[in-house]
């Protein structure tokens, strides 16, 4: 693969720059909040994609792992006064390992059965946390705003959260791109397509599924720590299956099977859902989610491969590639 600096990279940099200066233009907390939500949902979707898109194991229990991360971060800060930054690291390792070890015996299960197991684990966690005194039982726990600043990852303003979420999103995306093109990525994708073939070319499915689960659950636990500090309050309800769908639906819309798809899905779907809930939910509660569900169902029925699936096989992509190449040639001359 040749790596070169071209118009695509320039466009990407411009996009990132625009993202960086958004808070200077967007002042209302509400609007900023939409950006932050989009970013962390995007992170969650990417984390889910390690299992869902690359490995083809559909988990609907990721809300459970996110919840675990959120509780770890919040409890460490509240009770031991350990900074959420360390909490993120702890959450990544602990939740990643826990998820991988718990799900390891379940790797033999295929398709919907694996999905069922992930739901069962998340529900079991929810049940445990609902009854656990130390974690505030069903009422959940507050992450009080005693001190503002980096150490506690607590601010009144949403701007710092904006940057943290943005950086997190970029880091997650880079990690996933790296995985996608690495040995690990090839192993996961081969397993996704056919486990027997994977075995036949020398891939140990168990080993790589273990790694994928570790990364996927670990990353979403990091999102959980962020979530706990951003919202400032967590309870066992964040582990619900319906919460997990928040991270799955963007991937469906964007296209499972790629890395960019889920991210794109999150960028489109989250603001849409926020918009719907702002405009429709006070007309009648639930209307926003009805519309949301209808949109996702329509995509599943009419574009089952999602936006990226359609884009990858379309003439539009080729046209755009050609156009970009032409611009590249004009800007930088012909290069080998």
């Amino acid at each position: 693969m040749r790596k070169k600096f071209g118009i695509r990279q320039i466009l990407l940099l411009v996009l990132i720059l625009i993202c960086l200066i958004v808070p200077t233009f967007v002042k209302t907390p509400y609007m900023l909040g939409i950006f932050v939500t989009t970013f962390y949902i995007g992170c969650g979707t990417l984390a889910w994609s390690v299992l869902g898109s690359l490995t083809g194991e559909i988990s609907l229990g990721h809300a459970g792992f996110m919840g675990l991360g959120a509780y770890i971060g919040a409890l460490l800060m509240n009770n031991k006064h350990i900074t959420p930054w360390v909490g993120m690291l702890v959450a990544f390792v602990v939740v990643g390992l826990l998820a991988a070890c718990l799900l390891a015996p379940c790797f033999v299960l295929s398709g919907p059965y694996f999905t069922l197991v992930t739901i069962a684990f998340a529900e079991a966690f929810r049940n445990l946390f609902t009854n656990w005194d130390y974690a505030g039982k069903g009422q959940g726990i507050l992450v009080p705003l005693k001190e503002q600043g980096m150490y506690s990852m607590r601010w009144i303003s949403k701007v710092p959260y904006y940057y943290i979420a943005l950086i997190m999103l970029i880091v997650f995306y880079v990690i996933l791109r790296k995985i996608d093109r690495s040995k690990l990525g090839y192993a996961l994708k081969t397993i996704r397509e056919d486990e027997e073939t994977a075995n036949a070319v020398g891939i140990n499915p168990f080993k790589y599924k273990f790694i994928a689960t570790f990364i996927s659950a670990g990353l979403i636990a990091v999102v959980g720590v962020f979530y706990a500090n951003y919202i400032g309050y967590i309870n066992p309800d964040i582990m619900k299956q319906s919460q997990a769908l928040n991270y799955v639906m963007p991937a469906i819309i964007g296209g499972i099977g790629s890395i960019t798809g889920p991210l794109l899905g999150a960028i489109i779907l989250t603001p849409l859902s926020e918009f719907l809930s702002a405009t429709l939910s006070h007309i009648a509660g639930g209307l926003n989610l009805v519309v949301y569900a209808v949109i996702v169902i329509a995509v599943i029925l009419f574009r089952p491969t999602g936006i990226m699936g359609w884009f990858d096989h379309s003439k539009f992509k080729k046209k755009m590639n050609d156009r970009f190449d032409a611009i590249d040639a004009k800007l930088f001359g012909k290069r080998g």
Binding site: K183, Y186, A187, K189, T190, A198, V201, G202, I203
Partner: peptide, 8 residues
Amino acid sequence: VVSGAIFG
């Protein structure tokens, strides 16, 4: 074919 090459 890459997936064959990489794990061979």
